[in-house]
Every structure is written in C-alpha cells, then in structure tokens.
C-alpha cells in the first residue's frame, strides 16, 4: 500500500492538477478570512470551504491516471487497492491543505468572540478548528468517492452530482460537516469552544463506508 500511495502522490503532485482546487481554496480564504476577525468564525469558514475542495481533489486523483496505466496497477495489486490508494491520497492532500489553513487562520485571527468580550485561547481554538477541518476533509472525500468513477463515470453527471452533494452535506442538518462548522460559528458567539471529536468520528465512519463501496465497485464497473 505504501508503494501505491507514493505512486499516487507522485502522480498528483507531478500532474499539477492539484493547482486549481488549491488556488480556489486560497481565493476562498482570501475573500472570507481577514486578519483580526474572530478566530472561531474564520475557522468555521475555512472548514466549510474545504469540503468541495476535498471532493474535487478526489475527482482529480481517481480520474487523473490514464486507463491503460490504471489497468497495469490494478493487475499488480488488484483494482480495489489501486482505487483505495487514489482515494486516500486525495484525503491526505485535503487534510494537509486544511491543516495549513488552520494554522494560518489561527495565527492571523483575533482570539476573541464576535463581540470581542470573551477571550478564545488560540491553542484550543486551533484544536477545535483542526477537528472541524478533519470532518470536512473526510466528508468531502466521501462525497468525491461516491460521485466519481466507478459510481458515476460520465463527467456530465459526475460533476453536477459532486457539487450538489458537497453543498447538501454542508447545509443539511445532521451532517457531521454541518455539525462541526455550526459548532464553531455558535462557539464564536457564545465563547464556548467546541472540541468534541464526534463530528469527525462520524465523518470518518461515513468516509470509510464510501471508500469501501467505491473500491469494491472499481473492478466491477470498469473500464
């Protein structure tokens, strides 16, 4: 699996197809986060924006490899493991991007609530932000896994389905990403920092199921 992950990572980095989503995310943050704004609010924004970016990274990783090259890898390691490696590479990339964003946002923001009355310790805020980022990266990867190859193969269906699913998983009450982000936003009002690992854990379960389904189907629904 290490060799597969290294191969997929090299493929992602060298193809430079990671640039558009990363630039889009940077633009999102540049528009929505300014230094001196309340930290929890900005972290919530950064987490929410990461969800569609994570789904897009999954799309890049599972469609980037030419089919013939994918077949060579699938013969060597089995189609399920080859697909899982692509999904995990995208998840790691999204988590890395989110972690960097959390660090920057935590450092440049004002460590107080919205009304500037209560202080928000930066370390606890950063930890809460990381958990929310993780929940959004996981759920975004799950969305990407379920709305791309092998489940939806034509771009005409995959891309709209992916965007819609990313939007819904952000706004529907009960979704772990919604819970994580609204925890940060209300925390920024009340001063209560949400450090519950529950949303991230729920997102991890959903993602594990989505990855397992997509990997199991990759040998059945190819090419």
């Amino acid at each position: 699996m290490t060799a597969l992950l290294r191969y997929q990572t090299a493929l992602l980095l060298r193809s430079q197809r990671w640039l558009p989503p990363v630039i889009l995310y940077a633009v999102f943050l540049g528009v929505g986060v300014q230094s001196g704004q309340p930290v929890l609010d900005s972290l919530g924004y950064a987490a929410a924006a990461l969800l569609p970016v994570a789904a897009w990274l999954v799309r890049i990783c599972v469609t980037g490899e030419p089919p013939a090259a994918r077949a060579c890898v699938a013969a060597a390691r089995g189609p399920a493991r080859a697909h899982l490696a692509a999904l995990l590479t995208a998840l790691f990339a999204a988590a890395l991007l989110g972690t960097a964003a959390t660090l920057v946002v935590t450092v440049i923001s004002r460590h107080a609530t919205n009304d500037h009355r209560l202080p928000v310790p930066p370390l606890r805020a950063g930890a809460a932000g990381l958990l929310a980022i993780l929940a959004c990266a996981l759920l975004g990867s799950a969305v990407g896994a379920l709305t791309n190859r092998p489940l939806l193969r034509s771009p005409g269906r995959a891309v709209p389905a992916m965007l819609l699913a990313a939007l819904l998983s952000m706004v529907v009450a009960g979704s772990p990403a919604h819970a994580a982000v609204s925890g940060l936003v209300t925390g920024s009002e009340s001063g209560r920092i949400p450090v519950s690992p529950l949303p991230a854990a729920a997102a991890a379960l959903l993602t594990a199921a989505a990855f397992a389904l997509a990997s199991a189907l990759s040998g059945r629904r190819s090419p």
């Binding site: 077949a71 699938a74 013969a75 089995g78 189609p79 040998g219 059945r220 190819s222």
Partner: peptide, 10 residues
C-alpha cells in the same frame, strides 16, 4: 482483463 484481475467477473 478478467484473467489479469483488472475486472471482476459479473
């Protein structure tokens, strides 16, 4: 592709 294990038999 089936022999190589790239595709799973239906």
């Amino acid at each position: 592709r089936l022999v190589a294990g790239i595709d799973t038999p239906t």
